[in-house]
Design a binder for these strands. Structure first.
Lengths: 209, 209
DNA sequence: GTGGACAACATTGTTCACAATTGTGCGGGG
DNA sequence: CCCCGCACAATTGTGAACAATGTTGTCCAC
């Protein structure tokens, strides 16, 4: 239940600030109002929806400032994970990382923005998995969920792939070289660049898809 | 409601792995079963209790490994906050930081473990506030909540204050000097030392209070 | 035309009873 | 003596009704 609603929000089925009426969700997802209620409570503590007493729930709109804050925290935590990944990566992990890096190169060369965006998610997710840091994984999942909209806008920004590609490659290289400090530094540099780019794409209309 | 149960858990009124029966909590806190239910859902997503379908809730026992993971993430995020705090601290903030540092010195000199533990919380909390990073603040609140037990054990460990005091002083100094890099480094060094100390105090019986 | 009291409506909060599921003790058979 | 099935107790999940609250629209005085 909660997953269904969460997916719907992150997928963009519900616009930011849109009201989430319990009865409507109850019908749409074919569940009791109680179940919907619990799901909304959970999503509220996850930061995806806002709930105010007697006035119901609405999907939370994260401002530019919040998006920057979130990315700052991501910078710190994913930096940690990159360092851990550099320490723990097996040969199989490294092969997988290089595989993604290679696909990223061809995607950017071919101008395939959507594939690159998917590879981006896979790369960050793989670094997390290799790091073995479950706590960091949970923290980042929550943060990422709140940020999907800004993330999406950034991915669609023209010229963005060509600046982020070398950063991604540097991350992969550092992890494969088993250099934790370099991996952390590369990840922080990458997300630092995301932070700088966020204000530029803020307010961009989402047309594609 | 949720605050009452959360406090009870962090205070230690409920032991780890203890079952939390809805009816019992309902009576103890004088609230409807529905309210208790919602509170448990929220506490579950906060990571304080575990809930399994049709089997109820129990307070989550965090293992030593998890405690270390949590502290690693804290190291990354609080490092970020220390750096931000060094950039943003006003004169009033700095005065407050130095005040706490001074009180820490006298507490350690006088062997007042409990006061020192309280000051420790206040210091970390103040750094967070000064950093102005609300997202980091929320993340850390959650993590700290899961870790209270280990944190508490560590605070009671004999000889611990004398090793952590200079680290705390270094943090305050770096922030007051307006040196973000040094502040981040000092905070990371401090929490790194916590990580090293955690295994030593693991399994210690909690007698005092 | 504007603002305020008031009523009708919509939505959430709460309670209750009951259904569904799981844990437990008991007895019988191997 | 141990293991399996069965009934019963304990507990959670769910649905419906009702209460409480907030929102919207209307009417009337000014």
């Amino acid at each position: 239940m909660v997953d269904a609603i969460r997916d719907a929000i992150t997928r963009g089925d519900f616009a930011p600030d849109q009201r989430l009426v319990e009865a409507e969700l109850s019908e749409r997802f074919d569940a009791g109002r109680g179940a919907v209620r619990n799901a909304l409570v959970q999503l509220a503590t996850e930061g995806l929806v806002e709930r105010v007493q007697n006035r119901g729930a609405r999907v939370r709109a994260v401002s530019l400032d919040e998006a920057i804050e979130i990315t700052e925290v991501r910078m710190a935590v994913e930096g940690l994970c990159a360092a851990r990944a550099a320490d723990r990566a097996t040969d199989a992990d490294k092969a997988e990382l290089r595989e993604i890096a290679e696909q990223m190169r061809t995607a950017v060369a071919g101008g395939d923005v959507w594939s690159y965006s998917e590879l981006n998610k896979r790369l960050h997710s793989l670094v997390l998995r290799v790091s073995g840091q479950r706590t960091a994984h949970e923290v980042l999942s929550r943060l990422r969920g709140q940020n999907v909209r800004h993330q999406f806008r950034l991915a669609l920004h023209p010229g963005r792939p060509s600046v982020s590609l070398p950063q991604h490659l540097a991350i992969v290289d550092a992890i494969c070289a088993g250099d934790p400090a370099a991996a952390e530094q590369a990840m922080r540099a990458h997300l630092g660049s995301v932070i700088e780019a966020l204000p530029e794409v803020d307010g961009t209309r989402i047309t594609a898809l």
